[in-house]
């Protein structure tokens, strides 16, 4: 099992990396080729480059794919190969009861992702108020998610599963903790964007990239959470 999980991680990493390598033949200084078309209220901005921040975010997603993949890989190995399990001994893995609030949290994170996507869509029609509204909604849902996760931790702890009561509980805290920290990092960027949007002189076009990248990151973290949640539910 473990080796296949490791290879799964590897494959995902390689695929993402190949998406990058497709860029090897592009000419970064040229205006056509890898370009996106930008329109704004002030008219057509013409073709421009893929902004460096977008590339950097994709590379970063590859990094955290590796990170979460390895955590999940470790999860499987620890579950299946607890000390002595290979030799017919009973493993010490005992499933923990999952706090029901996790379902609520999942709903919050889905709503958060949807709101971010709506903010991104509203960018195209250049409706500032709607962008602002959806953006704030997206962040608030994400904060609710994190708060819900913390409540989940307390509930799990109260039901007798601390860090030291078996590996399943410990992994639960670690996986959700790492995921939550990544979402918190996203919220810092989100907060900066929200503050920038409050300024009069900041045009929608100036925050467009931040919102797009936040949306991408939100979707990615939703995907990670869904994978992890499935894993936690069934093991």
């Amino acid at each position: 099992m473990n080796i296949w999980v490791a290879f799964g991680v590897l494959t995902v990493g390689v695929i993402i990396w190949f998406m990058l390598i497709r860029k090897l033949n592009t000419k970064s200084w040229e205006r056509h080729g890898s370009s996106v078309h930008v329109r704004s209220a002030r008219g057509d901005l013409g073709e421009v480059h893929v902004p460096p921040a977008r590339i950097a975010l994709w590379v970063f997603l590859a990094v955290i794919t590796s990170l979460f993949g390895l955590f999940i890989s470790a999860y499987f190995i620890r579950m299946g190969h607890g000390h002595g399990a290979d030799h017919g001994m009973i493993t010490d893995w005992h499933s923990v009861s999952k706090p029901p609030i996790l379902w609520f949290n999942t709903a919050m994170l889905v709503l958060s992702s949807v709101a971010m996507q709506l903010a991104r869509n509203a960018l195209k029609s250049n409706k500032r108020a709607r962008v602002n509204g959806y953006l704030i909604a997206g962040g608030v849902f994400a904060i609710l998610f994190i708060a819900g996760q913390l409540i989940g931790w307390r509930q799990l702890h109260a039901s007798g599963y601390g860090m030291t009561q078996g590996p399943a509980g410990a992994f639960f805290y670690v996986l959700t903790g790492v995921h939550g920290l990544h979402l918190l990092g996203g919220l810092i960027v989100w907060l900066k964007t929200v503050i920038r949007m409050r300024k009069r002189e900041v045009e929608l076009i100036d925050v467009r990239l931040s919102i797009e990248l936040c949306t991408l990151y939100w979707h990615y973290l939703l995907l990670v959470w869904l994978v992890m949640f499935t894993l936690l539910l069934f093991t």
Binding site: L20, S28, W29, P52, I55, A56, V59, F60, V63
Partner: peptide, 13 residues
Amino acid sequence: GLNYVTTVLQARC
């Protein structure tokens, strides 16, 4: 590392 990779991919003259 994010800097090095992105610079090589995006900032060549």
